[in-house]
């Protein structure tokens, strides 16, 4: 039984060490804990029997793995690598797309873009801006129902 725990501790410690040097260093915590638990259990079960050197080695590997993992999780910042080529490709793709849109695609839904700068003008505001004229001008009065149509309504989910 002691041998089994020693083997588990050693395998888990090696695995933890390998994971700690890879980008998946955070995952090294799982085999580290397993290695420590198995090592301690092996020590507790049979204190008098030999094999302490192997357990010490497992502990040492685990501690190294933990140090690597903790250091990397504290000091390594996740940053995007070199994207110059990718950005160039993206810019080129936009140019090609505009050309395709101009020459090959029939755009049927041509509407102006509603941007942040665009002011939403309600019917009330516009009608207030219209100088009050005499009734003979016959300004068409828009009924209430149509006024609400001016507000851009999103489609209901």
């Amino acid at each position: 039984m002691k041998k089994l725990f020693i083997i588990i501790a050693l395998i888990a410690a090696v695995l933890a060490l390998i994971l700690s040097v890879l980008p998946l260093s955070n995952l090294a915590y799982i085999p580290s804990i397993l290695a420590l638990a198995s090592g301690i259990t092996a020590l507790i079960i049979h204190k008098e029997k030999p094999g302490k050197k192997t357990i010490s080695l497992a502990f040492l590997l685990t501690v190294i793995a933990l140090c690597f993992s903790v250091y990397k999780s504290i000091f390594t910042v996740s940053e995007v690598g070199d994207t110059t080529e990718f950005e160039e490709k993206t810019a080129q793709s936009v140019e090609e797309s505009i050309e395709t849109l101009e020459n090959e695609i029939d755009i049927i839904d041509e509407e102006p873009v509603v941007t942040n700068e665009t002011e939403t003008i309600s019917i009330d505001t516009i009608t207030k801006q219209i100088p009050s004229k005499k009734p003979d001008l016959n300004v068409p009065k828009i009924p209430k129902k149509e006024e609400s149509a001016v507000e851009i309504e999103p489609e209901e989910f």
């Binding site: 941007t115 001016v150 851009i152 309504e153 999103p154």
Partner: peptide, 15 residues
């Protein structure tokens, strides 16, 4: 404006 209101739906995304 009225005709725009009949077709427009996007109020969430802009350039």
């Amino acid at each position: 404006l009225v005709s725009l209101g009949l077709t427009a739906q996007n109020q969430a995304v802009a350039g």
